[in-house]
């Protein structure tokens, strides 16, 4: 053992800088979450601020709008998580069947471009294309004899718009990981299937889908951790008083409540609450994946 150490210690030393950086920037700041249980005042610091126990958490749940905000978050985020998993998979499977490499590349590039646009810009664009007076979407609806829809000013339609536009923005980018997995599948499997007389559909069903399933489980498990992230940037840029009842989410609420008024403790408490729920969900889904699919992620 001593011999082993004498020979290999420099390799271990190589880990040290990364380890130190990780501890300094990832773990030490973790102690900052104690301010979630304090009435934190910047000039008093963590040592001087008074302890208030679970007051901030209680505040979130007893706040008149608290339930509505949590409910909105869950609905919007749940739909986003499901759609952002399902649609990229379907898209990746379809694109994988495309024979023309050029066409495939062009489509792939085009669909992941929106990912790089910020919601500040898209917010303005959406206001215009979804306008009830001359917006392109409503004009198309008109030509089918459908009445104008006030997408951004009507609660249920607002949710629909938020979810759909998020999927539109992200599905191309999310599909990359599935496409990469599909490309990595051994062509011999397909060749063998073809010789055995399998149709394309049968090949997809029996080769492609089973082989990307592990990755799907990983992505699904990780995305469950974001179940309380309904998309702060997006909602902040699109919402308005007309749709507060259907569109106000935890993050926008904390933004107005915490940051605008400098309530650090409250903001931290909500952040901690969200992380905790996310953590629990990840653990559960990890267990489920292991039990049902006998698959270990970590």
């Amino acid at each position: 053992m001593a011999m082993y150490w004498r020979k290999t210690w420099p390799f271990h030393m190589l880990l040290l800088p990364a380890l130190i950086l990780c501890i300094v920037f990832q773990y030490i700041p973790l102690f900052g979450v104690v301010i979630a249980f304090q009435d934190y005042q910047p000039w008093l610091g963590i040592k001087g601020s008074t302890w208030v126990g679970l007051d901030h958490f209680r505040y979130l749940f007893t706040y008149p709008d608290g339930k509505q905000v949590i409910w909105n978050t869950l609905i919007i985020a749940a739909f986003k998580v499901i759609m952002n998993l399902f649609i990229p998979i379907v898209f990746a499977l379809l694109l994988n069947e495309v024979r023309k490499i050029f066409f495939k590349r062009v489509v792939q590039t085009l669909v992941y471009l929106p990912h790089f646009l910020s919601w500040v810009i898209l917010g303005g664009i959406m206001l215009d294309i979804l306008s009830t007076e001359g917006g392109i979407v409503n004009r198309v609806l008109h030509s089918f004899g459908i009445n104008s829809i006030f997408f951004l000013g009507n609660g249920p339609w607002f949710r629909f718009t938020v979810i759909l536009s998020d999927v539109w923005k992200e599905f191309g980018f999310s599909a990359i990981i599935f496409l990469a997995t599909l490309i990595g599948i051994n062509p011999a499997l397909y060749e063998a299937a073809e010789i055995d007389g399998a149709t394309r559909w049968q090949q997809v069903k029996s080769i492609s889908i089973p082989l990307i399933l592990p990755i799907v489980i990983v992505v699904a498990t990780l995305s469950l951790g974001r179940i309380l992230d309904a998309g702060f940037d997006q909602i902040l840029n699109l919402y308005n008083p007309l749709v507060y009842s259907h569109g106000d989410i935890i993050d926008t609420f904390v933004y107005r409540e915490g940051l605008n008024n400098g309530q650090f403790s409250f903001g931290t408490a909500v952040g901690l609450f969200k992380s905790l729920i996310g953590f629990i969900l990840i653990v559960i889904s990890y267990r489920l994946a292991y039990k049902l699919a006998n698959y270990r992620i970590f």
Binding site: G124, L127, T132, L152, G153, N240, P241
Partner: peptide, 11 residues
């Protein structure tokens, strides 16, 4: 403006 409720001053 029917869309007044979703617009800020610049818009």
């Amino acid at each position: 403006d029917k869309e007044a409720g979703i617009k800020d001053p610049s818009k």
